[in-house]
Simulated scan of single mutants.
Amino acid sequence: MAFPAPFDLTAKVALVTGAGAGLGAAFARMLATAGATVVCADINGAAAKAVGDELVAAGLSATAVELDVTDESRVDTVVQQVAAEQGALDILVNNAGIGDPQSLPLHKVPTSDWRRVLAVNLDSVFLCSRAALRVMTAQGSGKIVNIASMYGLHGSLMSAVPAYATTKGAVVNMTREVGLEYAASNIQVNALCPGFVQTEAQGGLLKHPKVVARLSRNIPMGRVAMPEDIAGALLMLSSSASDYMTGQTLVIDGGVSAA
């Protein structure tokens, strides 16, 4: 598949966290199809390998690595290995994330649940971005795309997700701050805020027909997104098409936040 020049990622190297399923897998496929060599990273090493093998079988360039994004030492090691083995790290997609283990109002949230969500959704963005920026500043270029959520811009009326919403709001503002810090360094940092997407997250809840039907009634476009609906915007933020854009947040929610 040929991509217009601004979206062509030939010779680029991308690291996608949480690439073993759902949005991460769709992002890896999109970047590889656009020409990038994609490193599929996931805490589930077998799932990451399955996605990487699928891409290679399709004639694309990919590899896989097991990565716990909350492990500082492991993050640093993996990023350095990617840069050393591939010769660069041009794109980091901070996609790994989890929801609240239980939908509970704040006064009932266990501290262990709170800290786990913060570690995966927020600390990992810091750890992975810091490691990648060490490489990107040395090479003089780079793209970081943080996956936030529409719940990073407003609260949830559907269920109680205090930890998730808090972390995604923090990711949105971290994107602004880091985007400004590296604006003069030829490194662009932007965020995507997806709405409801049918993935395996939360035990596949968003794929359940009754849940999909209920949510669809509250989405102006009348349907819950598929991962591929978000991947095009990810490509734009990962490519030279967004070279004059940094610290920004792109919302893809079927019109929910416009209401």
Rank of each mutant, 00 (worst) to 15 (best):
P4L: 10
P4W: 09
P6K: 03
P6V: 02
P6G: 03
F7T: 06
D8I: 11
T10G: 08
A11Q: 13
A11K: 13
K12S: 05
V13P: 14
A14M: 08
L15Y: 09
A19R: 06
G22P: 08
A25C: 01
A25N: 06
R29I: 03
G35F: 14
G35R: 05
G35Q: 04
A36P: 09
V38H: 01
V38T: 15
C40T: 09
A41S: 02
I43M: 11
N44E: 06
A47V: 08
G52K: 03
S61E: 12
T63A: 11
E66L: 05
D68G: 01
V69S: 00
V79L: 11
Q80L: 09
Q80I: 08
Q80F: 08
Q81D: 15
V82K: 04
A83E: 01
A84F: 11
A84I: 05
E85C: 09
G87H: 00
L89D: 06
D90P: 00
D90N: 02
N94A: 13
P101C: 07
P101T: 01
Q102L: 14
L104Q: 13
L104N: 11
P105D: 02
P105T: 14
L106D: 11
S112A: 14
S112M: 11
D113Q: 13
R115F: 07
R115K: 12
R115N: 13
R116Q: 11
V117I: 04
A119D: 08
A119Q: 03
V120L: 10
L127R: 04
C128M: 15
S129Y: 11
S129N: 10
S129H: 05
R130S: 02
R130L: 09
A132N: 03
R134D: 08
M136G: 00
M136H: 07
A138G: 12
Q139Y: 09
G140W: 03
G142D: 08
K143R: 15
I147L: 06
S149V: 01
S149W: 04
G152A: 14
G152W: 13
L153I: 15
H154S: 12
S156G: 11
S159Y: 14
S159T: 15
V161G: 08
V161I: 07
P162W: 12
T166G: 06
V172C: 02
V172F: 02
V172E: 07
N173Q: 14
N173S: 10
T175F: 05
T175C: 04
V178Y: 10
V178Q: 13
G179V: 06
G179Q: 12
L180Q: 11
Y182P: 07
A183E: 07
A184E: 10
S185P: 10
I187A: 02
A191N: 04
C193S: 03
F196A: 14
Q198D: 15
T199P: 00
E200H: 09
E200N: 08
A201P: 08
G204H: 09
P209T: 05
V212H: 03
S216V: 01
S216W: 00
S216M: 01
R217Q: 09
N218I: 13
I219Q: 00
G222C: 10
R223D: 10
V224D: 05
P227M: 05
E228Y: 06
L237K: 00
S239Y: 02
S240A: 12
S240Y: 09
S240E: 14
S242M: 07
T246S: 07
T246P: 00
G247P: 06
Q248H: 07
T249V: 09
L250R: 02
V251N: 12
V251D: 10
V251E: 11
D253K: 00
S257N: 10
